[in-house]
Design a protein around this nucleic acid. Structure first.
Lengths: 339, 339
DNA sequence: ATCACATGCTGAAGCGAATCAGCAACGATC
DNA sequence: GATCGTTGCTGATTCGCTTCAGCATGTGAT
């Protein structure tokens, strides 16, 4: 069987007995051009019958717009963050007929450069530059002159539009949960980063401190550890073996909370009877643990969606960070409130 | 500042003092056209100096190829599978200068249809049709006539090229691990699906059975439960409370294994001293649990890469399933082998 | 001097669409 | 009956690129 050529506008025009121009006007709903109802009808029918679909690349050549956005990420496969951002971005594109080009750099600046150039070569209408962990970045040179939104990151001078989670607000929310449950003393924070990789840890901690001190309480101490299950388990075990007995713990993410659970369990302490635990991320993990975790969600999908919406708006992007609220997801890890 | 127009081939040609044709031949390395070394040099310099980059969409118009693949998935945000497939596909695209368009359907056939059409409108050179859970699918109508590779799924008649994990082989590998550790009796399987959503469960179970019977052993019984932590915990708890005492468990995925761990722990049994556990997925979870899980990996990234490579090859796609091996990832959940 | 051939380039067409400018045909107006 | 305005279209150009066909010029053979 011969490969059948795609149906073009000319085919439709011929089938309808009109010129390409007329067909174009009809199919684009350009009413200012006075086309008879009859011609209108004939073109529509022909397009339908032939299954006409416009060639977006040809269109892009004329209109200098491709209805396509690019998304560059350092890591997509690790964890939920990237994939949820992709998901949110992809879904936000859908309504408006945009599509999303994606590229994973694995943190390699050369790959990053190549991907961005390839995207610009395809005339993308804008680029999402995303990082797995919330961080401060140097906007890559090839992005200069390209409509760009930073996603889960920001640049040093705040010159580029950026969408980030409000970790500070999230920290305050976490502290509020504990305060509402009557916790005022022996509230500890677990997960201060040894080698800070991102911005979220410090912001969350700062939020917790702010909210507690506004209520006249304070963070009793901070336990440092990597944001991973095993290191958290080890750090908390060691720490508990010094005899400290917390009544409430703020774990700076869910993996830290999981390690903390394991350590707490081994010391015969019960969550939430002996220790309340609040965490961040509200990942699947939060639902798997027993009791389920009360965790402050990072709305990654929403971030992705917001970033795409920013790209889609006609006006110029306004510089600076747009902070997205982090809602508290209630689990069973905080003792019931004291009235 | 005026928006500066992109540099076109004509700009380069003018700067080099040659025709567009000559510039094109030089930049595309078309040696059969006899260009003097001098002109060659001038064009190269001009292109470099002006920072020329070809407009891929214009190019696609001429060559009917876009150096872009599409990837349609039902769910990208849930779990690691999709994101790893995306990652593998994206990376495989990189070397050859391809880029990946992605779209998430959320299982909606209408959205699926729209996404596929949008991709075809952008002249993609091929489409990856992926599903989160390994399953049998009906290839969507708009894909007819489009170079398509099914990813983590297959069609009923095997008429479409497909890349899938070798779950049967994985099942055999899991059983082999237990056999090598001397397990022959009281080997149970946990996670037979109540409402089978995918193909992998049955294939894994069948692999386990095959390998065991080849060694003269057999599966003592199968515990049914959903593939999620809490249901697995509940099912295994109930099951253990009937007094059964397994010596080895094959959990059909890591989340089932996690729930199983919780149940086992509550019954005072030790992994691996009392019970060996082997699982599937080799997700992050496998490393978080204590002891770490021995788990048969589903090489999602590799699947994605393979699928892209299939799309890239010049020859026609050959129908049928390409099964990708699932390697065993050793953890500490299986008792040391008995010689 | 003529022809053949290689060398080194260029002009123009065409890919599929949008869109500006123009142009017949027709009725109404003065 | 000449002018005007409206209606309903179409031709030609353009976007950036590839590529076929052709065309000067120089060189060696006859």
């Amino acid at each position: 069987m011969r490969v059948r050529r795609r149906v073009t506008l000319l085919d439709v025009a011929r089938a309808a007995g009109v010129s390409r121009t007329t067909a174009s006007y009809v199919l684009n709903g350009r009413t200012e051009m006075r086309i008879s109802a009859d011609a209108h009808e004939r073109v529509r029918r022909a397009a339908d019958r032939l299954g006409y679909r416009p060639n977006r690349n040809a269109l892009s050549l004329r209109t200098a717009t491709s209805m396509t956005f690019g998304m560059v990420t350092d890591f997509v496969s690790s964890g939920q963050a990237s994939s949820q951002m992709i998901s949110g971005a992809s879904l936000a594109c859908l309504d408006s007929g945009h599509l999303l080009l994606i590229g994973e750099t694995e943190g390699d600046p050369l790959v990053e450069r190549r991907l961005i150039e390839e995207m610009i070569d395809r005339q993308v209408d804008g680029i999402l530059y995303a990082t797995l962990v919330s961080s401060q970045v140097q906007v890559p040179a090839p992005l200069a002159g390209c409509r760009t939104v930073l996603l889960n990151c920001r640049d040093r001078d705040g010159e580029t539009a950026s969408v980030m989670p409000d970790d500070f607000g999230g920290g305050r929310a976490a502290a509020r949960v504990l305060l509402d449950a009557g916790h005022r003393d022996r509230v500890f924070v677990v997960g201060e980063e040894i080698t800070p990789g991102g911005l979220s840890g410090a912001a969350r901690l700062s939020g917790v401190r702010t909210e507690l001190s506004a209520a006249g309480a304070e963070v009793a101490d901070v336990v440092a550890c990597e944001w991973a299950v095993v290191p958290a388990y080890e750090s908390v075990s060691k720490w508990l073996s010094t005899g400290v007995r917390p009544t409430a713990l703020v774990c700076l993410n869910d993996r830290v909370a999981m390690g903390t659970y394991q350590a707490i369990g081994e010391f015969g302490l019960d969550v939430p009877a002996d220790v309340s635990v609040v965490s961040f991320d509200a990942s699947e993990l939060a639902g798997w643990l027993r009791p389920t975790l009360t965790s402050v969600e990072v709305p990654y999908a929403h971030l992705g969606g917001q970033a795409v919406h920013a790209l889609m708006r006609p006006e110029p992007l306004r510089p600076g960070v747009r902070a997205v609220a982090m809602p508290v997801r209630r689990g069973g890890s905080v003792r019931p409130g004291v009235m």
